[in-house]
Amino acid sequence: MQAEQGPSKLVSKVNSGAFMELCRFIPFLLSVCIYFVLAPQSSCPLWMKALLKCLPILFLCTYILTHGINMCTHSKAQKLIAGLLFSAAGDIFRTTSTQLYPFQGDAMFGIAHVFYIGMFGAKPLNLLAGFFLVIIGTIYLLFLNRCLWDQKPFQWTAYIYISLIGTMAWRASAGTLFNQHWSWMKLFGTIGGMLFIVSDFTYAVSMYCFPVYNSGLIVATYYIAQMLITLSTVNTENKVIRK
């Protein structure tokens, strides 16, 4: 009888934990839905669009805090929240900027990537994953160079930013890409880092080359990337899977 109750209690505990995680994510998910409904409206003022854009990122910060993490000792959570807050600032600058090249927004996201790089750490090094992402970054740069050939200051800014986001994606994927020892949470971080590249590549093409009419792709991949990066950092107690 006790043997039968053991698995049922375990399943109940797992379901309860999954339900609690979903409840913690409800503010984030609702704010994302509100953004997609209200922000595209022409009657929505610019300041409201900026608020709606950064609100889901701020709710990811509250998601971290609801886990009862000791912020004084959990250095990864500190860097994650710092990265999210700088990302929110970047959203505000990019949304409200009337200039063609919003340097302030790019600078905020660049700082966010520095925090994410520190959060993911330098171990394992995984040079093979780094080499793979260097190839992707080179293709990215060659494509953008065609649009920025006569605009040297903006070209160098693009070089710096691509180097930062590429390094972030490398550190996010070092635990899974070409690695036999991985966990689901590390995989979430890898996917999040890659989606961040997709989002920013699409944004850069729209800003520097030609308009990308499906702007929802930029925002959707961006929010999913931030959500997965947050999940991979907060929930770190998963068993390693060996192939």
Rank of each mutant, 00 (worst) to 15 (best):
235 N>S: 12
28 F>I: 06
200 D>T: 02
158 A>E: 06
54 C>Y: 05
25 F>D: 07
8 S>N: 10
120 F>A: 00
221 T>N: 07
107 A>G: 04
95 T>L: 02
67 H>S: 11
143 F>N: 03
69 I>M: 00
208 Y>T: 09
81 I>T: 09
206 S>Y: 03
215 S>M: 09
89 A>H: 03
148 L>M: 07
137 G>S: 10
142 L>P: 00
34 I>V: 09
241 I>P: 08
237 E>T: 13
75 S>N: 15
179 N>V: 02
215 S>A: 05
157 T>C: 12
44 C>V: 14
12 S>N: 15
166 G>V: 02
115 F>N: 04
203 Y>W: 08
206 S>N: 08
95 T>A: 11
81 I>K: 03
102 P>A: 10
223 Y>N: 12
79 K>F: 05
111 I>T: 05
5 Q>D: 15
23 C>I: 04
12 S>K: 14
155 Q>D: 04
61 C>H: 07
141 L>I: 06
54 C>D: 08
66 T>I: 09
120 F>W: 00
103 F>G: 04
182 W>H: 10
222 Y>K: 01
53 K>T: 08
193 G>N: 02
46 L>P: 01
206 S>I: 02
214 N>H: 15
107 A>I: 13
20 M>Y: 15
187 L>W: 13
124 P>Q: 11
147 C>N: 11
81 I>D: 01
114 V>M: 13
122 A>S: 15
46 L>H: 11
